[in-house]
Amino acid sequence: MRYAGIVLAGGRARRLSGVDKPALVVDGTSLLAKAIAALAGAERVVVVGPERPGHGDVEWTREAVPGGGPVAGLMAGLAAIPPDVPRVVVLAADLPGVRVSTVDRLLGALGDRAGAVLVDAAGERQWLLGAWLAGRLREALPERGEGASLRRVLGGLEIVEVLALPGEAEDIDTPGDLERYS
């Protein structure tokens, strides 16, 4: 199944005192490396955020206005994906439990729906853990993405929810989250 991957790695990490979250190491591997590894089957991986050395064959890009939020980041990532790539997997760069099997389940559930997103144990859609039909995703995006909400932009699309396995949908946003993985 042909797909490309986009990793959003440009957040400000305000709740973690501005630390470079994608560079945080969990179980001997940076969070960014975990996200890239989960996209092992992708024909192209685009990382949106400041370039960080040591991540092999990925393409780096930035939002038109750095720090413009996830919709702006998604737009920058999609701009680097050729239009003939039919599917895109979008991941945040702060997911310690994401793996190839996560991506495979999302892609397998996608079918002809616009998107497939992971749903955590509380029933919340994880907008930065999803597989999308690239054309439908492009059509849904606004002209300008700075400050826009992913939930508002993508929530009206036909989406299949994929129940997360234990730990799969967790992210690291706070010192307490990081402590659980240290």
Rank of each mutant, 00 (worst) to 15 (best):
8 L>K: 07
29 T>R: 14
104 D>Q: 07
173 D>H: 12
81 I>S: 07
144 R>I: 15
51 E>K: 14
120 D>R: 11
7 V>P: 02
77 G>H: 08
114 A>N: 08
133 L>C: 08
90 V>G: 03
19 V>R: 02
121 A>V: 14
19 V>T: 09
107 L>K: 01
75 M>K: 11
67 G>Y: 03
161 E>N: 05
31 L>P: 09
176 G>S: 12
10 G>N: 03
98 V>K: 07
60 W>L: 04
100 V>W: 14
2 R>P: 14
15 R>D: 11
7 V>Q: 04
58 V>Y: 14
138 R>W: 13
74 L>S: 10
160 V>H: 00
109 A>N: 10
48 V>A: 06
154 L>D: 05
42 A>H: 08
67 G>W: 01
67 G>C: 07
134 A>S: 15
130 G>S: 12
39 L>T: 03
160 V>K: 04
161 E>T: 03
105 R>K: 01
165 L>F: 09
150 L>K: 01
181 Y>N: 13
98 V>S: 00
108 G>E: 02
167 G>C: 07
120 D>K: 12
160 V>I: 07
132 W>M: 01
175 P>D: 15
140 A>S: 13
88 V>N: 10
175 P>V: 15
49 G>A: 10
114 A>D: 02
48 V>Q: 07
72 A>M: 06
22 P>V: 08
18 G>W: 04
162 V>C: 09
11 G>S: 01
180 R>A: 12
127 W>R: 04
165 L>P: 05
106 L>K: 02
87 R>Y: 03
157 L>P: 09
78 L>N: 06
119 V>M: 05
86 P>H: 06
173 D>F: 01
132 W>K: 05
80 A>K: 14
158 E>P: 11
162 V>R: 05
70 P>I: 03
60 W>I: 08
11 G>N: 02
33 A>K: 06
63 E>Y: 05
83 P>Q: 14
178 L>H: 13
145 G>F: 07
86 P>L: 04
40 A>P: 14
125 R>K: 00
161 E>R: 01
172 I>K: 03
122 A>M: 08
21 K>H: 07
57 D>L: 15
170 E>H: 10
34 K>P: 01
61 T>F: 10
163 L>Y: 11
102 T>K: 09
64 A>E: 15
26 V>C: 11
1 M>C: 05
62 R>L: 15
51 E>N: 12
115 G>W: 02
160 V>T: 12
49 G>R: 02
69 G>Q: 10
104 D>N: 06
59 E>Q: 12
177 D>H: 13
126 Q>W: 07
115 G>P: 01
103 V>E: 06
171 D>G: 10
100 V>F: 14
83 P>K: 15
160 V>N: 05
150 L>R: 02
68 G>N: 05
